[in-house]
Design a protein around this nucleic acid. Sequence first.
DNA 1: GGTTTGACCATAA
DNA 2: CTTATGGCCAAAC
Length: 115
Amino acid sequence: MVSPGFHARVYACVRVVPAGFVTTYGDVATVLGSPRVARHVGFALAALDDPGVPWHRVINAAGRISHRGDLVRAELQRRRLEAEGLVFDESGRLALARHRYRFPTTALPLSDADP
DNA sequence: GGTTTGACCATAA
DNA sequence: CTTATGGCCAAAC
């Protein structure tokens, strides 16, 4: 992969998140190098067509599921997260502080080029 | 090619 | 707690 598109990088990051943990759009964007492209992380996942990518482990900074109208997707996401042991509180949020996955500072699947 | 759009985020009121 | 606003930048049109 010599010319990784933005989507491909998003998928690579999400693929790293282990089961039982979650990450946020902003975190993924930050790991990719720009904390301001959080929207594109969601945009990339919206166009996702790879069952190997655990898209359900990506939530927003508030610890809630971003459905943006698609409640069906949100319910599926919540179900998958609960199946991995995550627990939502009464407000529909989950303990981000406990389950947030920390991306390694090195050895990320983005090392296609050196800064 | 410019314009629109978005599974967001931080801040302010 | 909620709503409003500005910013951001890669795809789709």
